[in-house]
């Protein structure tokens, strides 16, 4: 699971008002290189909850992202490289995503988050 996906996931439990962002519990992180694509990053920047990405990347052991970001930074190659690495190259391979409101854990196995709910959570 890339942090791009983490940035798009919320707790879907019935009655949870503020299910974003899910806290990350790390067992295993892997890094996989992917081609750098500045256009993709520029397209996605406005859609990313920056603080959630910063916190998520820190919990995965990467603390190079600036705490605040604004669109003018997209002109900086150094910034784009860091954004690229955090968003697309860090994978949570094993661990869990934790609902910020209820503490319910959604397991992540082999890089795949399982967001299926129990009957009493739907």
């Amino acid at each position: 699971m890339r942090l791009l996906t983490h940035n798009m996931l919320s707790s879907n439990i019935k009655g949870v008002a503020n299910g974003f962002p899910l806290r990350i519990e790390v067992e295993k992180v892997v890094e996989k290189q992917v081609d750098f694509n500045a256009d993709f990053l520029k397209n996605m920047f406005a859609k990313i909850e920056w603080k959630a990405l910063v916190d998520a990347s820190r919990s995965m052991g990467y603390s190079e992202l600036p705490g605040d970001a604004n669109p003018s930074m997209l002109d900086s190659d150094d910034f784009l490289q860091k954004f690229h690495h955090a968003l697309l190259e860090l994978h949570l391979e094993e661990g869990a995503l934790v609902c910020p409101e209820t503490g319910r854990k959604f397991p992540v196995n082999k890089g795949i988050p399982n967001m299926l709910l129990h009957e009493d959570e739907v």
Binding site: S10, N12, F20, F106, G111, I112, M115
Partner: peptide
């Protein structure tokens, strides 16, 4: 699906969920 993607050298983000539950809000 992960195995099929890997066997073809392509990639996708995979989520076990009902339709798009957990994704619809942010996506």
């Amino acid at each position: 699906t992960r195995e099929t993607l890997d066997a073809h050298g392509v990639d996708a983000e995979l989520i076990t969920t009902d339709i798009a539950s957990g994704l619809a809000r942010r996506l």
